[in-house]
Design a protein around this nucleic acid. Structure first.
Lengths: 232, 232
DNA sequence: AAGAGACCATTCCTATAGGATTTGTCTATG
DNA sequence: CATAGACAAATCCTATAGGAATGGTCTCTT
């Protein structure tokens, strides 16, 4: 694989405003989200550099950023590894945190909600409804993407940069759990209905109702996951 | 200034398990917390490398990590800058986020609170009471440190790694606000009393009371800051 | 005098090289 | 057979060099 280097670009059109480390970051993030990198797998700096046909320097910078998201962990002099699988305790903690943050996001977003924001949310819900939900990963990838996008849109439209930062501190982990947490994609019907409920509450303009709908959704996600969870 | 390089260490005692980039990260963080780097100031990669007598590579890695904390911002091909001063809106958003997160931390910490944890908290409150509070920075530096430590201890003792991550996403900003937000150190008496109230609520073992005390504290911090705020 | 263009110093960005550390394997010994 | 030690390959970590972009200054033109 070869990423476009900055000096490959035609002169006079440096509209990119992105450097190689940014591309590497996004590529690694995609690998993690795709499940191409399994939990616990080593992420070699030199190896990744060879794979992407760049030098180790931008790879090192990209991994330093990723570490702060919790997606990868670093051990000095030993390298980076994809964060390990979720335990049952990790999951309980994650849901506790989501319950503290996401209903607040919904309440705030309900206030400053613009017509454009509402349209974006409607689009995410639509995509969630129509996305294929086959057994293999490539088939429910779009479903997961729409799910994540819905929650992230709400965080963005809270209008609060710090709540967005707090959600992002969780967001990657939420996505990671969706991939590796064990609860496959068996709850699509109910999850879609709950997302619709959140959307309608937001559209209605009642902040408390929006917060309650979001809290209800997270509660039910937790309940379903616990019910489906394999016996560790 | 010269940081200890890994190959300066005597052979056979590599107990450090830290690499140069870690030292650079901590040094830069100290500079930011100390106020030695003012908001908006440029943080040159090469310049910092010369200052610390290391190569730009570890500096680059340290800054990549710092960017994710919000303490510095990066513009591609232009370099890093210390995040700009807080506006009144930024402050309002930060307090909103703290209200969403910190009372939950207090409630959780109140449950799993260990005797050691309680002792640590007591120590932080004591340090807050006894810290000097002179006009110059070096004189109230310990005060700010104890304040930050108290809140961080509660986040840690929530026992929830994600709530801790969410707080850390805010923590740096909270500290930054304390330094640059305008509200000097005029509210020490009241702030100390509120911290004592939070501590006693935690010690009493009533989670809801602990959450309420923390919410009350954040509310009052906000109220005082708004009252003291300079006219932009 | 005001603005446009060229030049230069500074800084960022990437690649490369080499030392330091870890890890796996292989052999020798008790 | 088990274990300790040595060797080798892979990897991480830091330094250095040079291309590329930016910002400021200076000069020239209108």
């Amino acid at each position: 694989m070869k990423l476009a280097s900055s000096r490959d670009r035609a002169p006079g059109r440096p509209v990119s405003r992105q450097v190689l480390a940014d591309h590497v970051y996004e590529e690694l993030l995609a690998w993690l989200m795709d499940g191409r990198l399994e939990p616990g797998a080593a992420v070699s700096i030199d190896g990744t550099a060879r794979e992407l046909d760049v030098s180790p320097t931008p790879v090192r910078e990209a991994l330093a950023r990723l570490e702060h998201t919790g997606m990868v962990r670093r051990v000095a002099l030993k390298g980076y590894r994809v964060a390990p699988v979720f335990t049952r305790e990790d999951f309980a903690e994650l849901m506790e945190a989501r319950l503290a943050i996401e209903p607040v996001n919904a309440r705030l977003a309900c206030r400053r909600l613009t017509p454009e924001g509402l349209a974006d949310l409607r689009g995410a819900v639509k995509d969630l409804e129509t996305a294929p939900r086959g057994p293999s990963f490539v088939e429910f990838r779009d479903y997961l993407e729409a799910d994540e996008r819905f929650h992230k849109l709400i965080a963005e439209q809270s209008g609060n940069q710090f709540m967005l930062a707090a959600y992002n501190a969780l967001g990657g982990q939420v996505q990671r759990f969706r991939l590796f947490g064990g609860v496959g994609i068996t709850d699509a019907e109910q999850a879609i209905a709950e997302h619709q409920a959140v959307f309608e509450a937001l559209a209605s303009g009642d902040p408390e109702q929006a917060a309650a709908a979001m809290a209800d959704h997270v509660h039910k996600v937790r309940a379903r996951a616990i019910a489906d969870a394999p016996a560790d």
